[in-house]
Nucleic acid binder design. Sequence first.
DNA 1: GCAAGGTC
Length: 858
Amino acid sequence: MRTVLMVAEKPSLAQSIARILSKGSCTSRKGLNGACSVHEYTGTFQGQSVRFKMTSVCGHVMSLDFIGKYNNWDKVDPAELFSKAPTEKKEANPKLSMVKFLQVEARGCDFVVLWLDCDKEGENICFEVLDAVQPVMNKGGVREQTVFRAKFSSITDTDIWNAMNRLGEPNKNEALSVDARQELDLRIGCAFTRFQTKYFQGKYGNLDSSLISFGPCQTPTLGFCVERHDKIQSFKPETYWILQAKVFKGKDGPLTLDWSRVRVFDREVGQMFVNLAKMSKEAKVEAVSQKEKTKQRPQALNTVEMLRVASSALGMGPQHTMQIAERLYTQGYISYPRTETTQYPENFDLKGTLRQQANSPMWAEEVKALLSAGLNRPRKGNDVGDHPPITPMRAASEGELGSDGWRLYEYITRHFIATVSQDCRYLQSTIEFSIGTERFSCGGKTPISPGYTALMPWQGVPLEEALPTCQPGDAFTVDELRLVERQTGPPDYLTEAELITLMEKHGIGTDASIPVHINNVCQRNYVTVETGRRLKPTNLGVVLVHGYYKIDAELVLPTIRSAVEKQLSLIALGKANFQQVLQHTLDIFKRKFHYFVDSISSMDELMEVSFSPIAATGKPLSRCGKCHRFMKYIQAKPSRLHCSHCDETYNVPQNGAIKLYKELRCPLDDFELVLWTSGARGKSYPLCPYCFSNPPFRDMKKGMGCNECTHPSCQHSLSALGIGQCVECESGVLVLDPTSGPKWRMACNRCNVLVHLFEHAHKVQVSQDSCEVCDASLVMVDFNKARTPLPEGDTQHTGCVFCDPLFQDAVELKHASMRRTAHRGGGARRGGRGRGRGRRPNPKKPKDKMAALAAYFV
DNA sequence: GCAAGGTC
């Protein structure tokens, strides 16, 4: 029997499609990467009985990057990235070994059916999959088609079966348009980012951002925030005048009326109208109207709308919201959360979905009423053919979801119920008055039936005091009539929800990437999130955007993306040649780049106003090995040392603090050593500022401290202070921290393992000798007389920290608390047990210090 | 260390 391999874009879709096509009869197993599953069944294909294997990738298999040597920022001129630098496709997520997985499954298959999402990215992934599987598949007969593309517009039985019965071929042109997009984004983004970063970071010490990035999506995103900032800054309040009238009749009123001219910007004119109105003491009712109005129930929920509401009503940022939504999805509480579609599929089980909610105390009443009265037909939405709208998949309670999980789930559920509820109906009443020559009105809303707003009370029509009943011709007494001076106010900073709307409108990013771009501009310190999730640009953000405006406004305008996409769509339609479009567009941006480089002083002028030159920043810390003058420690991101005499900048580890290390010097370059600490309960180790960026030995890499230095005789090196192989990670060595007394400890120079030992000891030193059992370096300890664990009050002992029974109770395994990421290594179980109450590291693991050291010399 | 796009 021949085999048909079928590939979807993500595991969830592979499962849904397999279930439909096998009519629920498939068997499933996990693939070798643990992320994808394979669903198998037998059926008919092209008139023959075959074995089907349905599986998936996880998004793109490959991603584009420059070849290795062009990723060296110090040696490559960013201008070379426009044409000279070759690119290559690398596996997008090496951990998933997607190519290997696909090849294992594809070996011996006869046909492949591509079920990737039906958009350009999906078309591109089709060819990534083909590149992986075709070499290992059986070759078909002459003129036999072996590659098929399924085109579907929703994940419903009908649609999937239709797609299966009308298989076509993948579209190379659409895939090529994505290749072009990738290459353009890479070359342009990286060139500008590297140039800007290097230029400004070398000049200013307090930019507070480790990266001055540029991108066709993130830069316009920042642009929107700065545009609003500029409007606020340049706002000039204007004075205007309104006629304020209050009237009453008997017990009715007083009613505050709205003037039909709304406002005037000239005081004298306003006064004239007051005078004209004041000629009458009465307000005469000119007309009375009542109109029934409706507020429409919402359309089915898609991602962007969910993100907007989460931000504005739940106070949850887009990135966070998507994380929560993904968790709810994988736990089966909601449907797939990344979709643009706002229309339920035709056969969507609205009633069943609603029924699941009939017992939730929060909305049981409304749900039961709907079930017995009948669901309202959902509004027509937009079916993009990606995934159904976001809906709840099963009932849940607050306890099982956690706070934010519940709040998002609650909103999604309320939104779903609202889409099958009635519209909200209310009465709009208006009374029109005349006072003298001037017309006024007064309106009110009275709820008729709340409809869906019972589920979304925040959208409900508020109960107002009803308007008095009256008829045309009735007269009210004018209680007050005066000219009131007011001022126009500035707009407020852009809310995240408004930004999302702007991005969507201008096609900046996609439903999946909008949160990423917003997160980027925050993380790069261009924008901060203020109360009410309003986005306020920082000095850096403002200067960047104003700089682009001065040099080349197109770099920041939202049109830059759409202009490029217009070109790309020509490739997709087969109307333009891939190479030509790519060359042409790169050419334009290469020129823009050179112009930008030549004009950078215009942006620099703005920088100078807001930021301090690097030489004037920071405080003196340690001496330079070249000129022996003090270098300054710059704390702002990225923290670094700067020698203003040599005009050199030296990197130091991030996410921690550094201080002078006893004025000790590196024997190799005479730089004063500094001590890096990740925090009170973290690791610390000395490092040489010069060696850190310029590894002294062939077996060392950039970014290594003395605890990884292979200097054979320096007293601070790994060779001098290393004790034994790490108890958890593969390649690390436990190194004594000579500064840690009296709470002595050794720390792994790779992972965050921390071993506390010999608390209160006066002195701990690493001996030249090794343990006969495990080969770890022996340790010489001089204990405190009062607290020595040694028999008969002895204070001195040399032994192995892992094997010596006398040391047994004085050694305790912990984990360094890191400021940012909590490391969870493979050995977490063993470590977890030892946490807190002190358990010796497992002595069984070989601690071949020499072997570990030898590994460094490979 | 960089972009944006998929998705885990």
